[in-house]
Design a protein around this nucleic acid. Structure first.
Length: 138
DNA sequence: GCCAACGTTGGC
DNA sequence: GCCAACGTTGGC
């Protein structure tokens, strides 16, 4: 299974918005960056992702699941852009802040820390486990 | 609110 | 194909 991280400004689309979509999920539209798009194209249904609040909070707040493979982005006619759908799975019991990630052994190489501008990022299985632990999930 | 980093655009 | 200009992102 693949692990990923999705960033969103909570002002625009936050974890509560994502939860409100329920199992139907939400199209992760609006990505206009090739690296981020390529990451989405590599996703499979059932892959897991962290939901990260940028700017406000700067913390990982929840876990999502990819519920549709990448398809054309409905918000543009530009055929270059497509995106997956994700649905909320569960919140972290305790959000994991960027600050925590920066000092946590094992997370030094996280894309979140080294390429903070990439909006859809891969996460390694080790990083996933460490952050779930920090977040209070078994 | 500022600014550094970085990706994209477009002229040549 | 190069590169300068520009816009956006996101931490601080």
């Amino acid at each position: 299974m693949g692990y990923w991280l999705f960033k969103s400004e909570p002002d625009t689309w936050g974890w509560p918005d994502q939860v409100a979509r329920g199992d139907a999920g939400e199209e992760w539209h609006g990505v206009r960056n090739y690296q981020a798009r390529n990451n989405m194209r590599a996703m499979k249904v059932g892959d897991r992702g962290f939901f990260y609040h940028s700017n406000i909070g700067k913390e990982i707040v929840g876990i999502v699941e990819v519920c549709r493979e990448s398809q054309p982005d409905s918000t543009t006619d530009d055929p270059r852009w497509d995106c997956v759908c994700i649905r909320a799975v569960q919140p972290l019991l305790r959000p994991v802040t960027l600050e925590t990630c920066k000092v946590q052994p094992g997370l030094e190489k996280m894309v979140l820390i080294n390429n903070s501008r990439l909006s859809v990022q891969p996460v390694t299985a080790d990083e996933w486990r460490i952050i779930c632990d920090l977040g209070g999930l078994a």
